[in-house]
């Protein structure tokens, strides 16, 4: 479970580990790892901590696709859209999941349980089509298999 974004003590304890400009990406990664996404207020605190303008922090954060600015669900589904997955119909699977969860890629279910996104390649090409739920990889998917996996989350 992601930590509470209002826990400023926790934010502080993370930020104090970083002091140099080169730490920007690593600090953002730890913030996201802890809270599930990047909260605007935390970015302001990071800017202060690194003595950098906020625009540097947001510039870096928005450049990399890993960083999210809205909360993720308890289960974050990343559908792989790499080449091998594409030729094995991952687009159809994506549409299927979108219909099933009634959300689009980049969105989260109303109960905040499941969020969905597309990623470019998770390197499980030999098991295409593949997806990741949090850090676990699932391969050789079809609609039935995805249904079973999603049901097991609920």
């Amino acid at each position: 479970m992601p930590a509470d974004v209002n826990d400023l003590k926790l934010v502080e304890s993370i930020l104090k580990k970083y002091s140099r400009k080169e730490d920007t990406v690593a600090a953002l990664q730890e913030l996201q790892q802890t809270f599930g996404y990047l909260e605007r207020g935390h970015l302001e605190l990071l800017a202060k901590q690194l003595s950098l303008p906020l625009v540097h922090i947001t510039g870096v954060a928005t450049f990399y696709t890993q960083f999210k600015f809205t909360p993720k669900g308890t289960y974050h589904i990343s559908i792989c859209r790499g080449t091998a997955c594409h030729v094995k119909n991952s687009e159809t699977l994506l549409k299927h999941v979108e219909r099933k969860l009634n959300i689009k890629a980049g969105e989260i279910t109303t109960d905040k349980k499941i969020s969905l996104e597309c990623v470019n390649c998770i390197g499980a090409c030999a098991k295409a089509p593949a997806m990741m739920i949090n850090e676990k990889v699932y391969g050789n998917l079809d609609e039935k298999k995805i249904d079973m996996i999603i049901h097991s989350l609920e």
Binding site: V25, Y64, Q66, F67, N120
Partner: peptide, 8 residues
């Protein structure tokens, strides 16, 4: 180790 953040 330095981890990238998803940029090809």
């Amino acid at each position: 180790i330095v981890m990238g953040a998803g940029a090809f």
